[in-house]
Design a protein around this nucleic acid. Structure first.
Lengths: 132, 132
DNA sequence: CAGGATCCCCCAAGATACTG
DNA sequence: CAGTATCTTGGGGGATCCTG
């Protein structure tokens, strides 16, 4: 009911585009408790390079989801925090994350099953004589 | 609360990976009302090529979210439908979609503002050029 | 109609190194 | 520590053609 036609409606895809970037949701989530410095974010997140973090932050900033603040006194003290808009995204993100915790193993099981029993049934194309 | 550490936890990212593909969520959503044939999906969705649709369907199938059924009598009658697991994803998807409807214009406004005030090229791809 | 096969493009993302 | 500049790559996704 709420979201009906986001097939044709571009607006709905907008949110998916936001979450489509690998780190966007992760960074937003890492900021949910308050302002954080890049180095803190990198620690909390793990596995993200400085460059990619910066890109992600710029992207989120560009979309009005986070906020950049430089401390006037301390030179290298930069902090990012969620904007009001950004905070509203936490709920949907949590919904997705919660789903993962509930059904993650089912997905992995399905993947497992699909990988194992794939040999013949589905769209297999085994070339015999006509070697392409 | 529910989803705490999906920063380190790969399980939570799993769901985001599922939604990270451009068409995954869209196709799932297009299937929410029941079984659909590929051609119907293409009509409903719009802007997706046959090849990409097939890829998406395979991917969703691989993850146990949808189900493929060939009609025995009619040769070219293939239908896809959500599995039980797939149906559980509709809620999170709807949460995201609903957010887009609520805050989509805020995001676009932010983008606008960021673009205007920053003479440089926007760090993000334009999500959508069409008018909302 | 379903969907495989190909060719091509683009860009997110990784690795690395450098500057303020 | 924050951030930038390069170079490279993987693969999603678009377009086209072809087949069962």
């Amino acid at each position: 009911m709420t979201t009906d036609a986001f097939l044709a409606d571009c607006r709905a895809r907008l949110a998916f585009d936001l979450l489509s970037n690998t780190w966007n949701a992760v960074v937003l989530w890492a900021l949910r408790d308050g302002p954080r410095r890049p180095v803190e974010l990198r620690e909390r997140i793990g596995g993200i390079s400085s460059k990619v973090l910066t890109e992600t932050l710029r992207r989120l900033q560009f979309n009005g989801l986070i906020d950049r603040q430089a401390h006037p006194d301390a030179p290298s003290r930069i902090e990012y925090q969620l904007t009001a808009l950004g905070r509203t995204l936490l709920a949907p993100i949590d919904a997705v994350g919660a789903w993962a915790f509930e059904h993650g193993d089912e997905v992995m099981a399905a993947q497992e099953a699909a990988s194992t029993s794939a040999p013949q049934a589905p769209p297999t194309r085994e070339i015999n004589g006509s070697t392409a």
